[in-house]
Amino acid sequence: MVTQYSMKRGWTEFLEANKKAILERWLDCALALFPEKMGYSTPIGTVFSGALEKILSSLGKRENDCKEALDDVTRILAVQNFPPSKALSIFLEPKLILHDIMMKTTVADTLMQEAFNSRLDALTLEAFDSYMRHREKIYQLKVEEGSRRMYMALRRAEA
């Protein structure tokens, strides 16, 4: 218990201390997914920047409270021209970023890194669920649009 407590505490502090650096690089990677790197002040840049920050903060907490932020990101990714594998790769990116930072700044803490990686893996799978929900929504919209367009015809047919 004592070990776990100190690990958690060390982890939160580490994340807090390096949040800005991680976020900067992570956001850069995410925006570079687009054919022409997306600008920070564009609508997508703004949404990504807010959402990635929330996701990163939630990684330091016991409770996962980043569902909405995750949805905001995957909702954008799910309608882009690149495949799901490329879209969701942004959730694996922090592993590399964290590795680099650890190599440079602190003594490498494998336990902490493993914990971080497993949180990210879980997050990536959640992102996959969310991505799929948005894809399904697209198909649902197509069906709904068809009936709205034929509203009066359908109404007469049902009467």
């Binding site: 600008g39 997508i44 021209n81």
Partner: peptide
């Protein structure tokens, strides 16, 4: 360039 909603939504340079 960055005024087009298609460019802002896709990041595709040919949509500038």
């Amino acid at each position: 360039a960055d005024k087009c909603h298609f460019f802002l939504g896709t990041g595709d340079p040919k949509n500038m």
